[in-house]
């Protein structure tokens, strides 16, 4: 199976990290992965996006034409990438920054007030981990434990408090994502 994903948002919202952690985890679980960021001036405060592919087989193109999963953290990203999502795919979007929402009816929409939830957990910077949680809660793309290991190796020494908040955010995300697994 191959899952193609686009994560997009404002520079600084951590979209590249969403893709990176998922790719890293996929690799640790023995899958083929690719991670292709947008780069250049648009990264300096503009919109950023990353295409991530996780597959059991070899990955041909790392460029994603029809994503199975879109994570849109703001309205411009939702407007740009929403129409590209494969029929039957999933669009996870941040209702705090997507006031107009998305009008597709042939995909599964997962609207989440991500800023509100991140702030409740205690920091807006865990927003990207919340998104990872939603993705894996919904799709089972990678295991929670793999992401946890990744995060621990990254943060345990440097910032244990932030690690804790990040793990909370992922767990919360998984909870949300799971609510959508039975719905079609």
């Amino acid at each position: 199976m191959t899952t193609e994903m686009i994560c997009a948002g404002f520079g600084g919202q951590g979209v590249l990290t969403i893709g990176r952690f998922l790719a890293q985890a996929g690799m640790k679980e023995g899958k083929n992965v690719s991670w292709l960021p947008s780069y250049g001036p648009e990264m300096r405060g503009g919109t950023a996006n990353v295409s991530t592919v996780i597959s059991d087989g070899p990955i041909a193109s790392p460029i994603v034409s029809y994503p199975d999963v879109l994570v849109a953290l703001n309205q411009p990203s939702l407007d740009k990438f929403g129409p590209m999502v494969r029929k039957g795919g999933v669009i996870i979007y941040n209702t705090n920054m997507c006031p107009r929402g998305c009008n597709r009816d042939d995909v599964q929409l997962i609207p989440v007030p991500m800023n509100d939830i991140a702030n409740e957990i205690g920091s807006s910077i865990v927003l990207n981990m919340l998104a990872i949680g939603i993705i894996i809660g919904k799709t089972g793309l990678v295991k929670y434990e793999t992401i946890e290991d990744e995060l621990k190796s990254f943060l345990q020494e440097k910032n244990p408090d932030l690690l804790d908040k990040n793990l909370q955010a992922i767990k919360k995300g998984i909870e949300i994502g799971k609510q959508y697994t039975s719905v079609k």
Binding site: R20, M27, W35, I63
Partner: peptide, 8 residues
């Protein structure tokens, strides 16, 4: 693209 992308 090859320069910027990450793969295992």
């Amino acid at each position: 693209m090859l320069g910027q992308m990450m793969e295992p």
